[in-house]
Amino acid sequence: MPMLQHFLLAFATFGSALAAGSYPSLKVRNAGVPVGQFKNVSGIQIYHSYPPGRNTSAKAILHVTDIYGVPLLENQLLADSIASNDYLVIMPDLFAGDAVSDAEQEAGLNLTDWRALHPMSEIDRIINTTIAYMRSELGVEKIGGVGYCFGGKYVPRFLTASGGIDAGFIAHPSSLTEGEISSVKGPLSMAAGTLDTAFNATAKVRAEAILNTNNVTFQSNLYFAAPHGFAVRPNQSIPQQAYAKQASFIQAVTWFDSWL
């Protein structure tokens, strides 16, 4: 069977199983009304999405977003989707109300200037504060970290011996360095797309080699015809992109079910 036909058959079978309800909690939400709540914690607006029937959990997920941040509907629905699998999900505003909007992108926002307003030291501070809140006030014992695009750099930064994250998943990370990969100690799952120039197949292979050399538990998937941002904002009318978002969501949840 040709590769494309094999892919489409696998996609159709997978989609049919989801439609039939075989994996009801593993269906990522792409539309609808978010169910989480915003709370101000030490001056940081944090989106809380709760597991079914509870507002606490010994295991929780720290959601480190892309540049569109907590206001983005897809980010809130993604947090809610993870929470429906029995995890408390905590998603902090990394940009103090200055997340990038589509309107700013269309107007030609200078991302270099924007990034300078949100240096790594400040993002690290917000994540550290959020982790401390999760441990002390929410009573979380194990923390998983999901990082998308911009956030994909920061999950590895805290998946170290003393960073505070116990297991991680990243999708199409941007600006992730080999040094940051080398410092990873906890289990890490990675999702890459063949059309993503920020974290291409070569970078993925290099990251795998580093993790393997360091004897770190890892897993990675490469999604065909998936561009940067596919795990958050794909073009749902393109089957390969819709599949990549759904499959990478399952990849993340099943990773935490095994290693968190």
Rank of each mutant, 00 (worst) to 15 (best):
A58F: 01
I67M: 10
D66N: 01
H48Q: 14
T65L: 02
V64A: 04
D66I: 00
L62V: 06
G53R: 06
T65R: 01
R54C: 06
I67F: 02
T56H: 13
N55D: 14
G36L: 06
A58M: 02
Y50M: 02
I61K: 05
V64W: 03
T56A: 14
V33P: 08
G43D: 08
T65W: 00
Q37H: 10
G32L: 02
H63E: 01
A60E: 12
I67L: 04
P34H: 04
H63V: 06
K39A: 12
F38R: 15
V35F: 01
V35N: 10
A60D: 11
G36P: 09
S42H: 12
Y50L: 07
S57Q: 03
S42Y: 10
D66H: 01
T65H: 04
Y50H: 15
F38W: 08
A58K: 06
G32Y: 01
S49K: 07
R54S: 14
I67T: 03
I46L: 08
K39N: 13
Y50P: 03
L62S: 06
Y68D: 01
V35L: 11
S49A: 15
L62F: 08
R54E: 12
A31M: 00
G53M: 10
Y50W: 03
S42W: 05
S57T: 04
Q45Y: 03
P34N: 06
F38D: 15
S42Q: 13
H48E: 15
Q45T: 14
S42N: 13
A58S: 15
Y47E: 11
V41W: 09
S42K: 14
P52K: 12
F38A: 08
S57W: 01
D66M: 00
Q45M: 08
V35A: 13
T65Y: 02
Q37V: 14
P34W: 02
V33R: 13
N40C: 11
Y50K: 07
P51H: 06
A31P: 00
N55M: 09
P52C: 10
K59F: 01
